[in-house]
Simulated scan of single mutants.
Amino acid sequence: MKEGDTVDDVKSLILDKATERMDRFGFKKTTMDEISKDCKISKKTIYEHFIDKDDMFRCLLLRECHKTIEILFAQMGGVSDPLERLVLLIRNAIAYFNQDHFITRILKDDDLFVALATRKYHEIIDEEIIAIIAGIIREGKQQGKFREVDEKVVAYAGFKLFQAFSYERTRPLHKEEDYTEVLIDFIVNALVKK
């Protein structure tokens, strides 16, 4: 910890070091003592920011999910057409979750995911993503490109389909097959006015 570091700087340092250690050694083998040594701060300082190890890792999961959301939505750039944005979001998200990122390793690891994602945190993340997708659908409806649908329900259903075809722990139909275009076709045909 350096002079002039803010509370947020210290919390970010702790989460950064916890990410490195957990990624290398796993959740169960990562201790608060080791994180304290990695950060060069006292355990007392860590406990000023987090209730316990589980709380720290839930915050870590939330941070990683928000970082992923930012990355995915930044990749949509200046695309203004809601249908193009939705299709690009699906393609980019599936491509991202097929790569080896810290967040994808967490989501694909049953034990780790259960340890980190309490229902409350899982719901917060899901609701945020669903609200963003619903906003794109609402815009498409306002422009007359999408059918009159309940955007929250359709966003929820689309998000759950995305999860099933990406990082969820469901058995794929065929391991080597890419279902991106099938998922896009299904969602587009469900939304676009004929």
Rank of each mutant, 00 (worst) to 15 (best):
R147L: 09
L112F: 11
D126H: 08
D100C: 02
K141D: 06
I124L: 12
T104E: 10
K152H: 05
H174F: 12
A131I: 03
L61A: 15
F165K: 01
I124D: 05
C65F: 14
K160V: 11
Y167W: 15
R119T: 08
E64A: 04
A117F: 11
K141A: 10
M76N: 04
R85H: 05
E176P: 07
E148Q: 14
D178L: 09
D109T: 02
E70A: 12
R119Y: 10
I69L: 09
F73T: 13
A155D: 03
I94K: 13
M76Y: 01
G78I: 05
N98Q: 13
E64C: 01
N98E: 14
I129T: 12
G78F: 03
R138C: 00
L89S: 09
I137N: 02
R147S: 04
F162V: 02
Y167M: 08
A155G: 03
D111P: 00
I137F: 02
Y121K: 15
A157V: 15
Q99N: 13
G158T: 07
R169P: 00
F102D: 07
I90L: 14
L107M: 13
Q143L: 15
V153H: 10
T104C: 07
G158Q: 02
R169W: 02
H174D: 13
L116R: 04
I132Q: 02
R119H: 13
A164N: 09
R171W: 02
I137A: 01
F97I: 00
Y96N: 05
Q143R: 14
R119A: 14
A131F: 06
T118C: 03
E128M: 06
I125H: 06
E176C: 08
E64S: 08
V114M: 13
V79D: 01
K120A: 03
G77P: 06
V114F: 10
G144S: 10
F162I: 01
E70G: 15
G158W: 04
E148N: 14
G78C: 05
T118P: 01
A155P: 11
V79Y: 05
H101Y: 12
K108R: 15
E127K: 14
V79H: 00
G140W: 04
A93P: 00
I129H: 07
K175Y: 12
K145C: 04
F102M: 15
K67I: 01
K160G: 09
Q163F: 01
I90P: 03
M76S: 02
I129G: 05
F73Y: 10
I90R: 00
F113V: 09
I137Y: 04
G144P: 03
E148K: 11
I94Y: 08
D100S: 10
D81A: 08
Q142V: 03
P82I: 12
G140K: 08
G144E: 05
L173D: 05
D109K: 05
L72H: 05
R138S: 02
I106L: 11
V153D: 04
V114C: 07
Q142F: 00
R171Y: 03
K108F: 07
I69T: 09
K120S: 11
L107D: 01
Q75F: 05
S80A: 11
